[in-house]
């Protein structure tokens, strides 16, 4: 049975190991950051950062730098720019995000064009936009690990001020919390997590890993802690299964090169989201929902 599911060489392949480790680590970080992104209503800002990351990634290819550096550098600069243009003010938020997104996409178009005309980097567009998890070098692992730990530590250290700021900026400010500083630190965490998922599944698709597992987990639980855990688990599961299917697909279609990992990951994330909205839901979840309904009924009375 195992040989049916796992095509030969899956467990002994070096690129697969690297893909599994980096995929899992970035999925955990992205899942946790994604929950806050959804809570804060900053999905659009998250998506804009992926476009900014595209700019950085394509530029890094042109200048012969490692893509992770480009993804991260551009993401952090983009987060800063969005803050300056006014991402903190609710009404300014979409506008600021849109402005930065527009500029970033334009510059990305330039570098992607330059990359394709420079013979050494013709594959850049594919790699930047849709990822290349099987081509990652194992030396990337420590860098990814450090960045992940830093990001998770950052989120943990600002957890409560960030949570109250996300629920009500007014309440947080009245408590003496610097809502702007907390928001900026969160944007930093967001930029790093987008960078991490960009090297795994590509900058364009990293939105899917950021928002999908988070949105799914928020449907499934009433506890915020569990929402973080679920989002991480869903992200890791989708990534691992995606890596597995992509590897296996080399054997499904021997004539072709197999199908891209990112396609499978995004598809699985989407299926999880759809499934979370389906009935019948598992019993434990149902009971939780019924409690909610009982409370609602009491309210009406």
């Amino acid at each position: 049975m195992a040989t049916f599911l796992f095509e030969p060489g899956f467990f002994s392949s070096g690129p697969v190991h690297v893909a599994l480790v980096i995929g899992a680590v970035s999925a955990v970080v992205t899942g946790v950051v994604g929950v806050f992104t959804v809570l804060r209503g900053q999905s659009f800002a998250g998506h804009a950062l992926t476009d900014v990351a595209t700019t950085g990634g394509s530029a890094s290819f042109f200048y012969g730098l490692t893509p992770l550096l480009g993804f991260l550098g551009a993401g952090v600069l983009g987060a800063g720019a969005m803050d300056l243009v006014g991402v903190q003010r609710l009404r300014g938020r979409d506008i600021a995000t849109g402005v930065v997104l527009g500029v970033a996409t334009g510059v990305a178009a330039l570098y992607l064009y330059l990359d394709t005309t420079k013979s050494a980097t013709t594959g850049a567009a594919q790699q930047v936009l849709f990822g290349s998890i099987f081509t990652l070098d194992s030396s990337t692992i420590p860098v990814v690990a450090v960045l992940s730990v830093v990001t998770l530590a950052l989120i943990a250290s600002i957890y409560r001020p960030l949570l109250l700021s996300s629920l009500s900026a007014d309440l947080a400010a009245a408590r003496g919390i610097s809502v702007r500083a907390v928001g900026l630190l969160f944007m930093l965490a967001l930029a790093i997590s987008v960078g991490l998922s960009s090297i795994a599944i590509g900058s364009i698709l990293s939105t899917a890993l950021l928002i999908g597992p988070a949105a799914t987990s928020l449907r499934l639980t009433r506890s915020l802690r569990r929402a973080f855990a679920f989002a991480a688990v869903i992200g890791v599961a989708a990534t691992w299964l995606g890596v597995l299917f992509a590897y296996d697909s080399y054997y499904w279609f021997p004539s072709s090169q197999g199908l891209p990992v990112s396609f499978f990951i995004v598809l699985l994330v989407f299926l999880a989201y759809v499934a979370s909205g389906l009935h019948p839901i598992p019993r434990a979840l149902k009971r939780a929902r019924l409690d909610g309904h009982a409370a609602a009924a009491q309210r009406v009375r």
Partner: peptide, 25 residues
């Protein structure tokens, strides 16, 4: 205070935030 019904923060957690929302860590 416009709180979204989808936000998984129980009333109890919200009250507790009044105690320690300013605390880091």
């Amino acid at each position: 205070v416009s709180l979204d019904p989808d936000v998984p923060v129980r009333a109890r957690d919200f009250v507790a935030l009044g105690l320690d929302a300013h605390r880091f860590g």
